[in-house]
């Protein structure tokens, strides 16, 4: 049988999928053991026991100075900023993306400027934001919004514009006004794409968040990583990176599940 026709079963898929994870862990453990055998004080590739100790300190022991559990306070600080940024972006996108996709006049007005703005590298704007908006939460949230929204708007307005013309005409023959077409025909078909767009933008959103926190913050996952970097505390950095990744994966899965739950019809056409 040709390889192209051989499909793994359920169990085989699980095993195959976990192999790379296992490989990463094994390679790390081997490298760490080698380095620690040479020099027990090595800080670059700590042993699992050091990780356990670091996690214990960060997550389950109150900080000596502030009394806070640092991992959790960092997580809430970061997630607050991230969700605020993504939420504002989603609302802006829904309004602008629908208007651009539905109304030819608004498309003529806004599409060029959004195409232009989406090419501005957001991180280059960070100093401007810090100068204009101060070092507080606002500038960090605005950075996420600026970094994520132009892409989302372009994505959503393209999705809306690619709805078959026949569907819009059909709605007109069913006596829909422009507003009702937007509300009952376009919006429900744009929402699943917006959710998928947000999932795709989770990576960039975290990037902007951590960049902003690295430069100026007093709490946050990115702030902590860049803070302990000064002491070469790999035993803290590695768990933090893993935790950020887990958070991103969980949000991605959560949004995907939400989309399937609310919009069960989405993607049915393709699966038939």
């Amino acid at each position: 049988m040709r390889l192209i026709n051989r499909h793994p079963g359920r169990a085989a898929r699980l095993v195959l999928g976990s192999l790379p994870f296992l490989a990463i862990v094994l390679v790390y453990l081997a490298a760490s053991a080698t380095r620690l055998a040479d020099n027990p004080g090595d800080k670059l590739l700590p042993a699992l026991s050091s990780f356990a100790r670091a996690i214990e300190t960060m997550a389950f022991t109150p900080d000596r100075r502030t009394g806070a559990y640092l991992l959790w306070s960092d997580t809430w600080a970061s997630l607050g900023r991230l969700w605020a940024g993504l939420g504002i972006s989603a609302v802006l996108t829904l309004i602008a993306g629908l208007a651009i996709g539905v109304l030819p006049m608004v498309r003529a007005l806004l599409a060029p400027v959004i195409a232009f703005v989406s090419m501005v590298p957001p991180l280059a704007l960070l100093p401007i934001l810090f100068i204009a908006l101060g070092l507080g939460e606002t500038s960090k949230i605005v950075l996420i919004v600026i970094g994520v929204t132009p892409f989302l708007i372009r994505d959503l307005s393209l999705t809306v514009a690619s709805l078959p013309r026949e569907m819009i005409i059909k709605a007109e023959t069913l006596s829909a006004s422009t507003w009702l077409i937007a509300l009952r025909v376009v919006l429900p078909q744009a929402m699943p794409r917006l959710i998928d767009g947000l999932r795709l933008q989770l990576g960039p959103a975290f990037l902007f968040l951590i960049a902003a926190e690295a430069i100026s913050a007093d709490a946050g996952l990115g702030y902590r990583i860049f803070l302990v970097r000064r002491y070469l505390s790999m035993d803290i950095i590695f768990p933090y990176v893993a935790w950020i990744t887990l958070l991103a994966v969980a949000m991605d899965l959560g949004l995907g599940g939400l989309r399937r739950l609310i919009f069960p019809w989405w993607g049915m056409e393709g699966r038939r």
Binding site: P164, E166, M167, I169, K170, A171, T173, V185, P188, Q189, F263, W265, W266, M268, E269
Partner: peptide, 12 residues
């Protein structure tokens, strides 16, 4: 009223 070959009904 109109009926097309495709896209006549709303998938959502």
């Amino acid at each position: 009223g109109v009926v097309y070959q495709r896209y006549s009904v709303f998938p959502h």
